[in-house]
């Protein structure tokens, strides 16, 4: 495990160094840029694009988490129980929509730019979080909720002190999935003119410059893997704290 952590730290340091001073790494990508094409992306700062990319993902995932957890809580209360079967199948059907389609169809309503990307990310991010929160809240063992009820806890107390804390690792797993999907969808967002790292890859594809494609792909790939690992680590810590074994 120690070695794994060391590798990740080195990769992270390299990523930051590359974003701050990309020209220093030009020698790595030089063999890929043929006949005088620029080696390092030159139509904007890579650091700005990365920060913008992460910001879009952060906003969309935060909103999606709030709404999805809220909805899941609603349909697992007696008041919203009527919506439970429908919401399950909607979450199931929703996942058959490819992110590109969601993205493209948001354009007529919102125009080009960051707005349709945010909406697509938000909508697409809802599903894994909603599904996992449902699993977490409905999968609690009977004795636990019975004990809480026996202690005289009200519905709200049971929710905030028993159900949500116990479901937290599963909910977080949903947030992690959603974040990784959002990172990928945000990359495609540059086809509708959102300023994300996809711009670098697409500029490379359009001009046949493999150096651009590789650096864009590497930044997005490394970001996704590091964020995924970081969130998994948080999940493991939380699971250990509530005495459950981490889910694979």
């Amino acid at each position: 495990m120690r070695a794994g952590l060391l590798i990740r730290l080195v990769v992270f340091a390299l990523l930051v160094a590359f974003l701050v001073n990309p020209e220093a790494f030009a020698f790595v990508f030089a063999p890929l840029a043929s006949n005088g094409q620029p080696v390092i992306y030159n139509q904007g700062s890579l650091l700005d694009l990365t920060l913008n990319h992460l910001m879009i993902v952060l906003i969309a995932t935060t909103l999606a988490t709030l709404v999805a957890v809220g909805l899941a809580i609603l349909v697992t209360r007696p008041f919203g129980a009527e919506f439970l079967p429908l919401s399950r199948s909607l979450a199931n059907v929703g996942q058959t929509f490819p992110p590109v389609a969601v993205l493209a169809l948001a354009v007529p309503m919102l125009g080009f730019g960051t707005a349709p990307t945010l909406v697509a990310l938000f909508l697409y991010g809802l599903l894994p979080i909603f599904e996992n929160t449902l699993t977490g809240l409905t999968g609690l063992r009977g004795p636990v909720t019975e004990a809480a009820r026996g202690m005289g806890m009200t519905g709200l107390q049971r929710l905030t002190r028993v159900e949500l804390p116990l479901a937290l690792p599963v909910i977080l797993a949903g947030v992690r999935l959603s974040t990784v999907i959002s990172l990928a969808t945000a990359t495609i967002g540059s086809t509708v003119a959102a300023r994300t790292l996809g711009e670098v890859i697409i500029a490379g594809l359009l001009s046949g410059n493999t150096a651009f494609v590789l650096q864009g792909g590497l930044i997005v790939g490394v970001l996704a893997v590091l964020i995924y690992d970081g969130l998994s680590a948080i999940e493991r810590t939380l699971s250990r704290r509530i005495g459950q074994r981490a889910r694979a």
Partner: peptide, 9 residues
Amino acid sequence: TIPSIALFG
């Protein structure tokens, strides 16, 4: 985990 467009690239 690697986003599709990046992997394609």
